[in-house]
Amino acid sequence: MFWTNFKRISRTGFMNFWRNGTVSLASVFMMIVTLLVIGFIIFGSAILNTSLNALRQKVDITVTFIPTASEGDITNIKRSLENLPEVSLVTYTSRSQALEDFKKRHENDQSILTALNELNENPLGASLDVKAKDPSQYQSIAQFLEGNNALSASGVTIIDHVNYYQNKVAIDKLTGIIRSADKLGLAIAIAFILLSILIAFNTIRLTIYIAREEISVMRLVGASTAYIQGPFVTVGIIYGLVATVLALILFLPITYWIGNVTQDFFIGMNLFSYYLHNFLQIAAILLGSGIIIGAISSFWAIRRYLKV
């Protein structure tokens, strides 16, 4: 009996979807809007994450050593920095490399190069570029360097300066922006998703309101709740399925068009290639959302008319 009922409910659901063409079209259209909103939120968060990661990559602190510091002492500090859980990468720049970089940077400034030549020896110290896993962790790294950890074997500090304090304001500001962007993004996403689900729910509720008389007749001829609800829930699922397919197709030209703009604007991220690379995950999210919204909306909307 279960399979017979399942077959009958599915067949009726498909038939109702097909026969109520205009109503189905309106519901699918509203569902597409909902799924587009969800899709844009996925893209928006991807853009935000990529941009923030790129910004995070650009932040680091540089520890410059005094010219007399030995390479062994510097290597020791490098090793202890690498052992810190907050640190993701430490890059060593030797004195000669620092000189070369300096010359390259000022190759058009003849007076500086002449002054440098007159010194006879390399005035620049070696340095370590430290990248933290999170911008908020630079403070503790800087504190670590200020402590006894940066002393040479003879007990004298070999660090000339740490540029964290020069960059502190910028780093703090960036940390704040990243945190607020994460929170705000989430709040906006939840608000938009709720709003669009509400619109889809109301559209489906309206289609069921139209059928309320028929639902009460079904009740009066002795049909069970599941047997009445089934076809409506099936139609809701079909709305979700059709809307997902259409939304996925619509995203192709949309992301292609926006892709070029985002590539210039958001640190090299192309939305179109992001969409293609993550197509299966996005399709699964939209399909799941569409089916769940469709089924649950129908399920809830019909309940009040079943009280006969």
Binding site: M1, R8, M15, N16, N20, E214, M218, G222, A223, Y227
Partner: peptide, 22 residues
Amino acid sequence: RLISGKTVYENIAFTMEAAGKT
């Protein structure tokens, strides 16, 4: 109070389906 989206056959068949007829 017929079900407008169903044919005459389907309207009557629905009552039988609801009663679990084959």
